[in-house]
Simulated assay, not measured.
Amino acid sequence: MELNTINKTGTWSDAADRINNNFSKASSEIEKAKLASSRNKGLFSTLSSLKASVPSPIVGDWAVVGATIPGVVYQCKTKGTWVSTGTSGGGGDVDLNDYLSSEEITDVASIL
């Protein structure tokens, strides 16, 4: 982030504009940092355990609730409230199609 230099000379109006611009830039950087921080609160077996662990979520927080993965995804869309998104998730998929050909697998198996 590049801040404006506040000149020692000049008009107060020019200095005020530069100061206000710097505050705006700093605020933008703070918001970026907030959004970049991890909003995933983890995996919880029940909604009550999620609420007990994170009783005051902030907008953007999310968690997976369920005994297994994938589980129901809950998100905070209103400060302090967890709601189901109606979707499931929490697990990742790795697409191995076209990663190795059957010939390559046979070659590796013959070495073992």
Rank of each mutant, 00 (worst) to 15 (best):
Thr81Tyr: 07
Ile19Glu: 00
Thr85His: 06
Ile69Trp: 01
Glu2Pro: 11
Ala109Cys: 01
Asn4Lys: 15
Ser28Gly: 14
Val59Tyr: 05
Thr85Ile: 06
Asn20Arg: 08
Val59Thr: 12
Leu96Tyr: 14
Ile111Pro: 00
Gly90Ile: 07
Tyr99Asn: 14
Asn21Pro: 00
Thr46Gly: 11
Thr68Ile: 02
Pro55Asp: 07
Ala33Glu: 03
Ser101Gly: 06
Asn4His: 15
Trp62Phe: 15
Gly80Asp: 05
Gly91Arg: 02
Lys34Asp: 09
Val83His: 00
Val72Arg: 12
Leu50Asp: 04
Ile111Val: 07
Val54Phe: 13
Glu29Ser: 08
Ala52Asn: 09
Leu35Met: 05
Val83Trp: 00
Glu2His: 12
Asn22Gly: 03
Val72Met: 13
Ser102Cys: 00
Ile105Thr: 09
Asp17Glu: 12
Val94Ile: 14
Leu47Pro: 03
Leu3Asp: 06
Lys77Met: 11
Leu35Asp: 08
Arg18Leu: 06
Asp61Met: 06
Glu29Arg: 09
Gly91Glu: 09
Ser38Thr: 08
Gly10Val: 07
Glu29Cys: 04
Thr81Ser: 09
Ala67Arg: 08
Ser110Gln: 06
Lys41Arg: 15
Ile111Glu: 06
Pro57Thr: 13
Ser27Ala: 06
Ala15Cys: 01
Lys77Glu: 15
Gly86Met: 01
Phe23Asn: 09
Glu103Gly: 01
Ile58Met: 14
Leu100Asn: 08
Val72Thr: 15
Ser37Ile: 08
Leu47Lys: 10
Asn22Glu: 05
Pro70Thr: 04
Lys34Met: 04
Ser88Lys: 11
Ile19Ala: 04
Asp107Leu: 09
Asp61Tyr: 08
Ser101Met: 00
Val108Pro: 00
Ser37Val: 10
Ile69Glu: 01
Ser102Val: 04
Gly91Val: 00
Val54Trp: 09
Ser38Asn: 15
Asp93Trp: 10
Thr46Tyr: 12
Gly66Phe: 01
Tyr99Glu: 14
Ser48Ala: 14
Leu50Cys: 04
Thr5Asn: 11
Leu35Glu: 15
Pro57Val: 11
Val108Phe: 12
Trp82Ser: 05
Phe23Asp: 04
Thr11Glu: 12
Leu112Thr: 07
